[in-house]
Structure formats: structure tokens, C-alpha cells
Design a protein around this nucleic acid. Structure first.
Length: 406
RNA sequence: GCCCCGGUAGUGUAGCGGCCCAUCAUGAAGCCCUGUCGAGGCUUCGACUCGGGUUCAAAUCCCGACCGGGGCGCCA
């Protein structure tokens, strides 16, 4: 038994040292404190003292230590240990993982991101809506839908609010947005895919063209990143990084030009091909050299885009865009086809049966203004903004191909 | 779904046919020391994913299952 013992106590905001010189605290308190297991929950009463030896300049001399919950031992993973913990282990023990300030900071930042999105869109006269997540059909084919049983009827988890938000464009709500979960049954297994994610969707009526949509989305992402860099500086510093402000205006690269850039770098792609992950990264590198972190890639081949995207007449292209953040797509959207006949025509072209979309098409038959919108992956935005290696770092309890719990 | 790689103590790892009743770190238990501060010293505890096979001999090689990592495709 030495003459002094210490406890490091952690709460949401940080840590403080509890110092117990043997002569200055009751013996039973000293004994209880030194017997405490790591990560136990305590309530402490004492005197806060300035102390040159304490790490943050202050320490507590306790007069009472109440053990609210003793932690079992050994811990399933260390919180302050110097050994690494694999992500799988961390996710299996997320309640413990989240005790690390740097892990928690990501989710506090994510919360800020959502608040800034809300703030910006409301300022710009958007109305927040909620569309069903249990649906009868998907926006584009059924292969990526999770099937569920709905009172004996087949139903699906929504992969996107696409059809609903477009229908609302005929109502006079004019500018709407939604932040809600989206479900994809794609068997993707990458650091940027999960089967459940938060989708930030917007749709605006009476646009003059796609540029109107880009302006809102650019304004919004810029507002978010600026806001986090400003109000979240302390949280960001816990991640040992600094947010780099994207340069504005975001450059606009036409798909055809992007293709040339990629081919010039040695990739063998031809007109109509998807840029691919490698192509996206190449573009990301080229743009980074020019100082741009965020940029648009627009006018994709109509063939590569869903039925609801408007074609660029007289060309093989479409009024479509992706928003890329350092080589990764974080949002996509475009101007929609609002003309009933052209829409039906496009459905057929895509091999879809218009009859199975009658609830959707009806909204186009009685006055539908020109409109456009986007879908943005909130976690992808957070991931790229904070330069995180895996999208799972931005989801408290991620769902992917292999993970259904916790 | 395809292609690579891997599964060793609570955690993270070394070992990759006999030298291993398995290394190191962290952790836990105990002792010593100590105004500590990702403290230090000593002692102890604790593991080869599962099932087949090859071999005189398997943590080590082969097959399968399960689990995980990376890349691709697809996309937010």
C-alpha cells in the first residue's frame, strides 16, 4: 500500500483525476476506490483543487465515492488500452466502443450535420416530409428490395422515397425534403456500402433546369461543412484531423469529359461505360491536384440512368448529376421527366410495366410541373468530411450483408 | 455475386510440419514501489474457430463449414 492512489473519472465532456492521499481520505473510501474495477460507474463528492501535478490542472479530493455500477472483468475490449481493437470486435461491443471520446465525436458531429441540413433547407423554404418505408413496389426493379410480410401481403422496405417525393411535386408543396432510412438488399461488401443508411432527399418543382437543383444542394453541403468546421471544431479535433473547406463553386464536369480524363490516365473505358470505382478515384485525384475536394459530374448517358430522369434530347445523355467528394459519390440526382407520355415511354424503354406504377403515374396525369431533386447519403457525407476509412464508423449499429446485430 | 487474404489467451499479435504442454504486448489476480498521470518492477492466470483428412508427428499441410479483412461489381 502506497501513500496515494488515483482514479481517472470520465464523463461526456472529458476526464478528471481523483487523488486520494492516504492521510487525507477515510480508510474505507481508500480501500473501496483501489478495489474498483475499470469502467465502473461512480458518483463522487469532493473538493476540486488546483494541482500542478494533475494533467488538466485540477483534481478532486473525494469525501464520498458511491459505486453506482461495478463493471465486470475482464472487459470485452479495452477503452483506454494501448492495444488496437478490430472493427468487428468494436461493433460487437459498441456500448463499450462508444466510451471512447473519438468514437463518440463522430456521432455528435453527425447529429450536427443533420441539424444544419434541416436549418438550411427550412431557410430556403423547403418543407420536411415523411414518406412510407413499407411499400408495395420499388423505384427501380425489385432485386435490391428487402421483402417483408405485411398482414399477409407481400411488401418491401423502401429503397428510396423517389416515387413519393416526385408525386408531391404536383401538390403545391413545391419544395420538400426528407431525411429517413433507406434499405438496399444489394450484396455489396465494401467500406462505403451498408444495407440500411440515412438518405437525405430533396425535390423542387418549377425549376428552370438542373442548375437550380445543383445550387440548392451545393449551398446545403457548403453550409453543413462550414457549420461543422465552425461549431464542431472541438469534436473534430478529437478525431485528430481538421476539416478542409471545399472550394466553391464546385466545378462541373460533363460525363463525356470525365471519360476523357480517365482514358487519358490509362483506363480503357469507352462512351457509355460506367466510370467505375477506379475512374471515380482518378477523377478525385485530378480534382484534388487542382484544389477541389467536391465537384459535380453531370450529363450521364440516359441509358445508365433510371426511367424518371429526363433525357437530353438529341443526345445520348441525360439531365443527371452525381456529387463527388474526394473520389466518392455522395449524392446523385437530376431533372425528372414530368411529361406523362415521355415518362411512360421511358418506363417501357427500361423494361418496366407502367401498369404497376399507376399510383405514381396518376400524379403526372393532372398537372405536374417541371421538377428535379437529389438523394444524398448522409453517412457518406460524414465519412468523406471526416476522412474516415469505413462508412461503418458513422453508423452506431450498422447493418450490412453479414451484420444483423447488435 | 466474383477475386485475393486471414481466423492463436478478454483484447491485439508472433510462430507456419517435430526445437511450442505456443511469443510479445495489453488485461486480470497478488506483492513491491510510487504525486500517479497510456507509471515502473516481480510473480501468477489465460489461447491454437469447428469437422474431416494427410503424416511416425499438425497451431503449422489438404478439404469443407462457419466467421472476419481487402478489392471489384452495384450504388447513397
Amino acid at each position: 500500500m502506497g501513500g496515494i492512489a488515483f482514479l481517472i473519472v470520465r464523463d461526456r465532456h472529458g476526464t478528471i483525476q481523483v487523488a486520494m492521499p492516504k492521510k487525507k481520505v477515510p480508510p474505507e473510501l481508500f480501500a473501496a476506490a483501489t478495489a474498483l474495477s475499470r469502467e465502473s460507474v461512480v458518483r463522487i463528492k469532493g473538493v476540486v483543487k488546483q494541482s500542478a501535478q494533475a494533467r488538466n490542472g485540477y483534481e478532486v479530493i473525494p469525501s464520498m465515492i458511491d459505486v453506482l455500477s461495478a463493471a465486470r472483468s475482464p472487459l470485452p475490449m479495452g477503452v483506454v488500452d494501448k492495444v488496437n481493437v478490430e472493427m468487428d470486435t468494436r461493433l460487437n461491443n459498441r456500448y463499450m466502443d462508444l466510451r471512447k471520446p473519438e468514437v463518440r465525436a463522430v456521432f455528435e458531429i453527425k447529429s450536427m450535420v443533420l441539424q444544419f441540413i434541416d436549418e438550411y433547407l427550412v431557410k430556403n423554404n423547403f418543407v420536411e416530409v415523411f414518406t412510407p418505408k413499407v411499400v408495395a413496389s420499388g423505384a427501380e426493379g425489385g432485386s435490391t428490395l428487402f421483402k417483408i410480410d405485411y398482414f399477409g401481403q407481400p411488401a418491401y422496405l423502401a429503397q428510396s422515397p423517389q416515387l413519393y417525393k416526385q408525386m408531391l411535386m404536383s401538390t403545391g408543396l413545391d419544395r420538400i425534403f426528407e431525411i429517413s432510412p433507406a434499405f438496399r438488399a444489394e450484396p455489396s461488401d465494401t467500406v462505403r456500402h451498408v444495407s440500411e443508411f440515412i438518405s437525405f432527399d430533396g425535390e423542387m418543382a418549377h425549376i428552370r433546369g438542373m442548375r437550380d437543383v445543383l445550387d440548392v444542394l451545393e449551398g446545403c453541403t457548403q453550409y453543413v461543412v462550414e457549420g461543422v468546421a465552425r461549431d464542431g471544431a472541438e469534436l473534430v479535433s478529437k478525431l485528430n484531423m481538421e476539416i478542409k473547406m471545399p472550394k466553391t463553386p464546385y466545378p462541373v464536369i460533363a460525363y463525356a469529359d470525365a471519360l476523357d480524363m480517365v482514358v487519358a490516365e490509362g483506363l480503357s473505358l469507352s462512351m457509355g461505360d460506367d466510370l467505375g470505382t477506379e475512374g471515380e478515384k482518378v477523377i478525385g485525384d485530378i480534382m484534388a491536384e487542382k484544389g477541389y475536394d467536391v465537384y459535380w459530374i453531370v450529363d450521364y448517358p440516359e441509358e445508365a440512368k433510371p426511367f424518371y430522369i429526363m433525357e437530353k434530347d438529341g443526345t445520348p445523355f441525360s439531365h443527371s448529376f452525381d456529387l463527388d467528394y474526394r473520389g466518392q459519390e455522395i449524392a446523385s440526382g437530376g431533372q425528372r421527366e414530368h411529361r406523362y407520355d415521355r415518362l411512360v415511354e421511358r418506363m417501357r424503354k427500361k423494361g418496366l410495366e407502367p401498369d404497376s406504377f399507376d399510383f405514381y403515374l396518376a400524379a403526372f396525369a393532372y398537372g405536374m410541373p417541371p421538377h428535379g431533386g437529389w438523394g444524398l447519403g448522409v453517412e457518406r457525407l460524414v465519412q468523406k468530411m471526416l476522412d474516415l476509412p469505413n462508412i461503418r464508423e458513422t453508423i452506431i449499429f450498422p447493418r450490412d450483408r453479414n451484420r444483423l446485430s447488435p
